[in-house]
Design a protein around this nucleic acid. Sequence first.
DNA 1: GTTTCAATGTGTTTAATTTACACATTAATT
DNA 2: AATTAATGTGTAAATTAAACACATTGAAAC
Lengths: 246, 246
Amino acid sequence: MTAEEQVKQQAATRTLQEIQSEVRSTNKIALSVDCVIFGFDESKLKVLLIKSDLKKYTGKWSLLGDLVFPNEDIDEAAYRVLKQRTGLSDVYLEQVHTFGKVSRHPAGRVVTVAYCSLINVQHHKLNILDNELHWHDIKSVNSMAFDHQEIFDTCLKQLQKRVQEHPLGFNLLPKKFSLRELQNLYEAILDLKMDRRNFRKKFFSMDFLVDLKEMEQDVPHRPGKLYRFNFEKHEKKKKKFIGIDF
Amino acid sequence: MTAEEQVKQQAATRTLQEIQSEVRSTNKIALSVDCVIFGFDESKLKVLLIKSDLKKYTGKWSLLGDLVFPNEDIDEAAYRVLKQRTGLSDVYLEQVHTFGKVSRHPAGRVVTVAYCSLINVQHHKLNILDNELHWHDIKSVNSMAFDHQEIFDTCLKQLQKRVQEHPLGFNLLPKKFSLRELQNLYEAILDLKMDRRNFRKKFFSMDFLVDLKEMEQDVPHRPGKLYRFNFEKHEKKKKKFIGIDF
DNA sequence: GTTTCAATGTGTTTAATTTACACATTAATT
DNA sequence: AATTAATGTGTAAATTAAACACATTGAAAC
């Protein structure tokens, strides 16, 4: 870890009290980033949360976030938070929405830019840095600190939409995966059941899957074939008459 | 106009020099909103721009924006800018993306939240408040001040996507419109030609159009029927097996 | 007022995509 | 060797999208 990184790491662990004093020191608006970090484990979609350190919200969970430094791009700030908390870099990260209601944060006027990140939980397990963190099943997340519930809901909806438009889901899977895992993932994200035969047909008809000629190991029943994601460019079919689909 | 509105109007006409001095007075991050205001006129999609008042960018055009007040929601700030510049309220306004590179603005560290607005140009003509404003054909917009070109491009892409998912386009049309105008609008937004028969079929098969039993007036050839948008709720067809469409 | 013109208005056929649905195969377990 | 619980595969029906051509109307030109 470089000196610069250490400074950032130190700064990012400011308590809410410290943030509060900084925010209130001027009447200007403070800017933060919050990351909704998704993982996939045991056929369930999970989100990485931290225990809120503000008394008012004792027992509530929060997203991972921090104030943006004056000399740092907001995207960089989000990467920094992610790196600090998970130890991971080179992961999927996308800005989703900015939340800027006057009274959204108890520490003062803090506008926050929400990011959505998709990580591989297996990799993360090797790098876990903080025992205040916990992976929550998204179905059990229903009352978070501040307006974090709204931020989370927005990011989840965005993910559900995005995952149907772009092959993002692979970011949540291990490098080698079976079609069953892939389908479990989509069912967990979209919260629905799909027909196995149609699901397979759909993915095989696109160029996303490379057959690794390997089989699953240590599964209690018949092993399935393993695939990896095909990183070569995928041509998007152009339609002449764009299907307006309200 | 209330006293509060006057204060806001006054504040919003700050010059860039004034903004600059405010931004540099602390080392904190300043927050602004920028509005990409779309209109539709003469079968062309237009965007409302203002001449940049910063010397470095003389002759360049800018989006309409302002700093966010400490006691104002960011959505409110965007509405304020829109109201000031167009005189219009109750118009379509949607947050699109936040731009937060360290050096994006010459006045210092200003992070800006971009909004997309769709207005009816006919209404706006009655309310025009500022002769520094100009409606530009989107096809001729290619070098704006600061990073406004990038912001504009992002908002246009977002609009192209949104308009195929939701019936937003109607916000750009007069209350009464012909199918030809509707198709011209979609062709202008999406920058493509559509088959007239399929286009009509598509819109009639949805519940969006109410036949006003009126005909166009003062058109140089055979008049077409006039319609209005049907504001009643439209049930979105649910698919069982969600079409993953990369 | 007849003709010309340029737009509106309408249906059908084909292709592509989506959906529904059932049975054989495999490997681990008993 | 039989059982079990999963993987793996194909086809038919329904829906949706795409391609395509001609009659009708009203204004403008003559």
